[in-house]
């Protein structure tokens, strides 16, 4: 198992090293394709290679035309299998945190909750790999207020670190009748305003925590980005007065996520590269929006 993992990791790194070259080749092909479509002369710098590249272009189909990046590779096979999630907390969780994890368990279909006990991260990851979990979610707290969420994709990563703000759990709302019950159907997803490359990446990480829903599913989960804070909302809807009238009803927890790190590896890998880190004290941080407009 260990050797297999090492081999897989090495292969992954090798593929990553090829990515730059592939990208270059793709750009060349794209230029040629454009020139051919517009009926313009082939760019002079590509005239020597044109014949070979054109042959390659002819042989391409929908799957091979666009180069699959390494980043897609981690999630390349994610759609073939339903996600299987392990949920756990930091050590010695308080009552509110355990309640919050319970709710998260119902938010993600096909999730399992585990008491953290005294387990160390290495052990957890190892057992997750052995049982073919696709994701591990760790929830952290500060004095009973959930303040951190780590989403780790298995087997190779990436790991996204989120900060949690404005958490309102179902347990906080005492009126049981007003919040209603939690449906178990696979939810539809709404990912709003993830326009940048990083936003796209974050959306991919979040998206693949949920299985493919049925088209008529009435359960909606929203991740709406606004100035780098991702609002999580959970609704069910009903169309009682005709197809145009939608009655939304919020159920389940709500919170704001703030991304602060993406690591190209699993949680336990201290040596793993950082894909992106939030630098809050840089002068330009104020002006920039990382996930979308």
């Amino acid at each position: 198992m260990l050797r297999r993992n090492i081999r897989l990791r090495r292969e992954y790194l090798y593929r990553k090293s090829l990515e730059g070259k592939e990208r270059l080749l793709y750009e060349k092909k794209r230029k040629i394709r454009e020139a051919l479509e517009d009926g313009k002369p082939i760019p002079t710098e590509l005239r020597n290679e044109e014949a070979a590249l054109r042959q390659e272009i002819d042989l391409e189909d929908d799957y091979t035309a666009v180069p699959r990046s390494l980043i897609d590779d981690e999630y390349a096979k994610a759609t073939e299998r339903e996600p299987k999630i392990l949920l756990t907390t930091s050590r010695d969780p308080s009552q509110p945190l355990t309640q919050f994890t319970k709710e998260l368990k119902f938010v993600f279909p096909n999730a399992e909750r585990m008491n953290r006990g005294g387990q160390i991260i290495n052990e957890i990851i190892e057992s997750c790999r052995a049982r073919e979990f696709t994701d591990l979610i760790l929830v952290h707290e500060h004095r009973g207020v959930p303040d951190g969420l780590i989403v780790c994709h298995l087997p190779f990563g990436p790991t996204a670190y989120f900060g949690l703000h404005n958490v309102v759990t179902r347990h906080d709302i005492k009126d049981k009748n007003s919040i209603g019950t939690m449906p178990g159907a696979n939810p539809h997803l709404i990912l709003n305003n993830f326009t940048t490359k990083l936003g796209d990446r974050t959306a991919t990480i979040l998206k693949h925590l949920f299985p493919v829903p049925k088209p008529d599913s009435k359960r909606i989960i929203t991740f709406a980005n606004q100035s780098d804070y991702i609002s999580f909302r959970h609704h069910v809807y009903d169309k009682q007065g005709g197809p145009k009238s939608i009655e939304l009803k919020e159920i389940g927890p709500r919170f704001e996520l703030r991304l602060y790190q993406i690591k190209l590896g699993t949680v336990e890998q201290k040596e793993a590269q950082n894909e992106w880190v939030l630098r809050p004290y840089m002068n330009t941080t104020k002006k920039r929006k990382f996930l979308g407009d």
């Binding site: 404005n166 709404i190 929203t222 709406a224 804070y229 609002s231 704001e256 104020k286």
Partner: peptide, 25 residues
Amino acid sequence: NIRPPPVITEEVTASLEDIIKKRIL
């Protein structure tokens, strides 16, 4: 330097729900 976390007012919730409704339609 950090944008403060948004305060969730009724307007914010309403705007979010508008987006969701639009998407559902």
